[in-house]
Amino acid sequence: MPLKSAESKKSLTTAQREELLSTLKARFEKNVSRHQALDWAKVEAKLAASPAKLWSLAEMEKTGGEPDVVSHDKKTGEYLFFDCSEQSPQGRVSVCYDRAGLESRKEHKPKDTAIDMATAMGVELLTEEEYQALQKLGDFDTKTSSWIKTPDEIRKLGGALHADRRYNRVFIGYNGAQSYYGVRGFRASLKV
């Protein structure tokens, strides 16, 4: 029974679904340059058939991510959504990279981690390649930074990657996974 109640929490009411779809449609129409040649009706049909993915998009929206469609994979039929908020989503800042980073802190621990939050939301952190692709669609993280998916070989050594845009250039940097900052959050991706 607990699993069933947990699953029911990951669904939207009809009103929430309609409001989210309206928000996503308006953003889609306002930012055509992010997804030229894509048809909203097809995206919406895919979303309607994927209630769990729609819930994840609602979580992205609720935490300030402003998700939008950025590409379509013709082979799989999947649409790719990224957080397209101008700055790192406000509802996801001041977090360590992952649980091991959080547990290694002796004091002043943040409330959560980027990896744990993403898992709970049903999304993935952007990879370095995805972050670079996002930055080709506009100027993001000009005052903030975002944790990005860190390769295992770096993570095993205690590090974690973050990215931002400064001086009209995208920078990929690193910190210890236990670090956190009020202006660093994470950006997510979701395939639907």
Rank of each mutant, 00 (worst) to 15 (best):
M1A: 13
L3S: 09
S5W: 04
S11G: 05
L12D: 01
A15P: 01
E18N: 14
E19Q: 13
L20V: 05
L21Y: 04
S22T: 14
T23N: 09
R27L: 10
E29F: 06
K30S: 15
N31L: 09
V32L: 12
R34D: 07
H35R: 15
H35E: 10
A37E: 14
A37L: 09
L38C: 05
D39W: 01
K42E: 14
V43E: 01
A45Y: 02
A45E: 14
K46P: 02
A48Q: 15
A49D: 14
P51S: 08
K53I: 04
K53N: 15
L54T: 14
W55Y: 15
W55C: 01
W55A: 00
W55T: 03
S56D: 11
S56F: 10
S56I: 09
A58E: 08
E59N: 10
M60A: 03
K62I: 02
T63R: 11
T63V: 04
T63Y: 11
G64F: 06
G64R: 01
G65L: 04
E66V: 07
P67V: 03
D68Y: 00
V69T: 06
D73K: 07
D73Y: 02
T76Q: 05
E78C: 01
Y79V: 04
L80Q: 12
F81S: 07
F82P: 03
D83G: 05
C84I: 03
C84Y: 02
C84T: 15
S85A: 15
E86C: 00
Q87D: 14
R92E: 04
V93M: 08
C96K: 01
D98Y: 05
S104T: 08
S104H: 04
E107R: 10
K109S: 06
P110Q: 09
D116Y: 05
D116Q: 13
M117T: 15
A118P: 02
A118F: 01
M121F: 14
E128A: 13
E130T: 07
Y131S: 06
Q132V: 10
A133I: 01
Q135R: 07
G138C: 07
D139I: 06
D141C: 07
D141T: 04
D141Y: 05
S146R: 03
S146V: 03
W147P: 00
W147N: 01
T150Q: 08
P151E: 08
D152K: 14
R155Q: 11
L157W: 02
A160Y: 09
L161E: 10
L161K: 13
L161G: 00
H162G: 07
H162I: 00
A163H: 03
Y167E: 14
V170M: 14
V170T: 15
V170Y: 06
F171A: 08
F171T: 12
F171R: 13
I172M: 07
Y181Q: 13
Y181T: 10
G182F: 08
V183S: 12
R184A: 11
R184N: 12
F186I: 07
L190N: 11
V192M: 11
